[in-house]
Nucleic acid binder design. Structure first.
Lengths: 192, 192
DNA sequence: CGCTTGAGTTAGAAGCTATAACCAGACGAG
DNA sequence: CTCGTCTGGTTATAGCTTCTAACTCAAGCG
């Protein structure tokens, strides 16, 4: 196994992984806006510009993190679906994933960085999440006599989940005397 | 009128207004993350640290902008309500306000800046928006036999509006062959 | 065994927020 | 009218950021 990997390549891959590891830790605490390559380099014991051997720019590192976040979410939803969860189960799996690392959720679904434009393949990966949701709604028994197509219902599902979830993560329910978990559950129930 | 204002105070107020004017322009194009006090100072013809005579820090300027944004949104929704708009009308007024300056919407309802903590009075102002919504739902004729209180329905309204709106502003409907306006209208309709 | 490749270094440019020290002009009090 | 204070502006500077350039040194490949 790993026949074609030279020692150099393996070292490089490992350092890249360590960089991303520290990037995730820093991201979880400070958010993506304050993610500093210098700080990561210091934590790794190397100084400043050495990181540019592994990531051409700060944006490229962030792009990699975005890709991984999308993949992680898609995998989470997919495995929940494969485990037999219904649509409501998927919603709670998504919420659990988001609360597990709020900054990771905000990284992909939060305010986009104005200058930064995501590469095409990230949008391809982001579609994977929607694909699972559409599958789930196609398998879901329909309620009314005439019902919107699964893709349309999945989209509506997604906007509602994101609506309550993003407001919760942003702390907009703070002084409002409302239980976010209950509100989320209620909002999911109205979809059925 | 303006009896107690000395010439100094009037000048100071005017410069503050000019600073905020340029801040809004810069915000609309580059977003809050890239808002630069230096750049604003240059545009005003003064150099760098002079701005600190008017705003103690970058955060204080942003706080002022946040306050104004909340006020503007609350006024918009209030006047729409006073003009006789129903709940759906309020939703479209909100969407119009958001599309009019997306960065202004994201400033208050987007990803919060990790270090920055909003002062108490900004949350007080943000409540004003909810108050109008609750008023609108209290005036709305109820549909079902038993219905949730107006505050609860207003909250649900708000999460749905924000859900579809924030995804639209973030560009997450880009390659999805979906009309955001239609999706928004549909989502609002399901509330009735 | 030598040559090439690449990982790491320091130096430095350009930008940012923010503070310190200073200067000059306008304002209010006597 | 004059004097002193207060304030809006300046430049210099510290410390942070991303990122480029030039260089060194060692590891790996042929």
């Amino acid at each position: 196994m790993d026949a074609g990997t030279s020692p150099r390549e393996r070292y490089r891959a490992q350092v890249r992984a360590e960089i991303k590891q520290h990037a995730w830790e820093q991201l979880a605490t400070t958010g993506v806006a304050a993610l500093s390559l210098n700080a990561i380099a210091k934590q790794l014991g190397m100084s400043g510009p050495a990181l540019y051997r592994y990531f051409a720019s700060r944006d490229e590192l962030i792009t990699d993190l975005v890709r991984d976040a999308y993949r992680s979410l898609a995998d989470t939803v997919r495995s929940a679906f494969d485990a037999g969860a219904d649509v409501a189960g998927l919603a709670h799996a998504i919420r659990k994933w988001a609360l597990d690392d709020p900054q990771r959720y905000l990284l992909i679904y939060g305010t986009p960085v104005p200058g930064y434009h995501a590469p095409d393949d990230t949008t391809t990966i982001s579609d994977k999440v929607m694909v699972v949701l559409i599958d789930a709604f196609a398998a879901q028994p329909r309620n009314g006599p005439v019902s919107a197509p699964a893709s349309r219902r999945a989209l509506s599902f997604w906007t509602r989940v994101h609506g309550v979830l993003s407001l919760e993560l942003a702390g907009h329910f703070a002084g409002m005397d409302v239980d976010p978990a209950q509100l989320f559950a209620d909002e999911v129930d109205t979809l059925l």
